[in-house]
Design a protein around this nucleic acid. Structure first.
Lengths: 340, 340
DNA sequence: CTTGGCACTCGAGGCGAACGAGTGCCAGAG
DNA sequence: CTCTGGCACTCGTTCGCCTCGAGTGCCAAG
């Protein structure tokens, strides 16, 4: 049975522990939060909470520490998102509104998020696969070299060089340009790839070879999942604040190098679905001491990527959750504006 | 007076201290290096080296530790670059030859460098200001919106959006395209900027307004120093190996967030001029415990950027220097190939 | 169900002794 | 003049021991 007062006690324990980084005892608890009952009563509640696995005692005669299960209950039932201050809101909008291109948005977001939460922030670059083709440009550098530029709705630009077997004239290149753009403009990447594939056979036979070369490079650029896996990471220095070097900092520092690991940590959160993964709930046993607060972002209902913060399980969940959500909303809005 | 044997002793001290991370005593020294003299002799030499400031004793009855001055002498006089193993050479060439674009080259270099040296690696993106304009492309998205794409000789692509006050037709846009390309193709950024500036007045008056808009965005993109300041950082996890958290790791971790600081650390090293900055020799007193091994890179005599590693003063200089130089040469070569 | 009281536990921190790595110095040998 | 073995000395590290105190669990009374 978990009654209201026990929940209050749990909340107090989590808040104190997050603030002090030290096991919290019954006496300190009633002093610092006006619980209105005696330490002995709190002790009884604590014993019950411990039986049910919400808190844990490092050793006899020590204070209590929340378990992952305790944090989970706290996040699910007890935490109210800490509202952002107006100063913080203003910081977000002025910084992000000043971003000039996609790279800039991502880099500024990651910086912002790490400063707001004083934690390590991760922002995934907008996924290529869900965006649409805005335009394809072909530039003749020499008669046999064409620069192919792929512009996507998210503002991402990919460019590749194509070597042709045979010289191509400006007029012919113009035909090719029109053909690929007609087939792909405004179309989602996946559909665009198949549309491009059918192009060489459908077009004038004289153009077929050139089209094949160009299409080959384009489909490769479109299917290039490297860009889906790009991440920006910031705020690593915040790790320095944490004491527990070996269990908390080192594994995380190692994970931060492995972008594949980070992508898995961010997971596939939906828009507006703020996901909190606490300690062992995550996919990596080495990261049993770290939590992830993440959410998806993207204009309207389109999920373009995820962003979030990672840190020790003992983190300020309400604050982190609020900051992550606020930044995600701003980024979504900005991507929407650039896209209209 | 610094005779040969004293230098041998200093070299032995540096090597041992780098390997063990502990002050090294006279006895251990003669055992581990076949110095052919007795510990007492070594002690005399050590006393002399200490008088001259090359080594230092943390406290009486402790072993000796090299000072910054000692490392300096070691690097200048005693260190021979550790030759790369063939496996390492192969790793460099296969990894970097597989890079598809500029971003990829930089990211792979930083990864490579951090793995080779087991240290934090920093690679500066090729400087925009020293490269030349390869091509400028203008794409009509709507009659009043033009996407301006600037392609540089280094493979860097910058793109901006221009809103026109007045609608422009395809044929007129073509004129503008020809004009800006004629003025800039193959020209260095600085010269291109001035050439562009004169364009609106020289051209047909009907085009002037449009040219002005396009030129404005282009010059802004060219002078955008943000891209000059872009860095890739990798291997942060290697910091975890170092014990001295507060003096060595934390300040460095903080510096890694500040790209301005890192740029200053890398400094303006010339091509092939391998620069080693040891401890206090650097510009930041907080980083008195960290050293930088850096060099410039770029095809032929052109300095496009710098790359290097940073770590505690107690680092493997010969190995780091060799790795930094090897990677810089490979990167230079690849940039040269992509540029021909 | 709550509360005050009480005995108990156990880690943290202070103290001092023993240990040992490393030193500086000196006198003698080469 | 240089090298070497010997020796007394220094001083940080380690370990055991003790005390202190925060915090607990349990119990009997309100």
């Amino acid at each position: 049975m978990v009654d209201d007062r026990k929940l209050d006690v749990l909340r107090a324990i989590v808040e104190d522990y997050v603030a002090t980084e030290e096991p919290v005892g019954s006496k300190a608890l009633v002093e610092r939060h006006g619980l209105g009952v005696s330490p002995a009563t709190v002790r009884n509640d604590m014993a019950a909470l411990e039986d049910e696995g919400y808190i844990h005692q490092p050793h006899t005669s020590a204070g209590r520490v929340p378990t992952d299960k305790g944090y989970r209950l706290f996040v699910d039932k007890l935490a109210t998102l800490k509202p952002m201050s107006t100063a913080e809101r203003r910081a977000i909008s002025t910084l992000l509104d000043g971003a000039v291109d996609l790279d800039d948005v991502v880099q500024k977001s990651v910086r912002l998020l790490s400063q707001l939460t004083r934690q390590v922030a991760i922002v995934q670059y907008p996924s290529l696969s869900r965006s649409t083709v805005r335009h394809i440009e072909l530039v003749l550098l020499t008669p046999t070299r064409v620069m192919v530029i792929l512009i996507l709705s998210t503002g991402r630009v990919e460019q590749r060089l194509v070597e042709l077997d045979e010289e191509i004239a400006d007029t012919e290149l113009a035909e090719v340009r029109v053909a690929v753009n007609q087939a792909t403009a405004g179309v989602q990447i996946a559909a665009a790839t198949t549309a491009l594939g059918e192009l060489p056979d459908a077009a004038r036979p004289e153009l077929a070879d050139w089209l094949r070369s160009v299409v080959g490079v384009l489909t490769e650029a479109m299917s290039d999942h490297r860009s889906d896996e790009r991440l920006a990471v910031g705020g690593t220095a915040n790790l320095a604040r944490y004491g527990d070097f070996d269990t908390a900092v080192r594994p995380l520092l190692e994970a931060l190098e492995e972008h594949v690991v980070l992508l898995k940590l961010l997971g596939e959160s939906g828009i507006d679905a703020l996901t909190v993964r606490i300690g062992h709930e995550g996919p990596y046993s080495e990261l049993a001491a770290t939590s992830v607060v993440a959410t998806g972002y993207g204009p309207q209902e389109l999920h373009l990527g995820s962003l979030g913060v990672v840190g020790p399980t003992r983190m300020d969940y309400p604050g982190s959750m609020a900051a992550v959500r606020a930044v995600a909303r701003y980024v979504s809005r900005i991507l929407d504006e650039g896209n209209q």
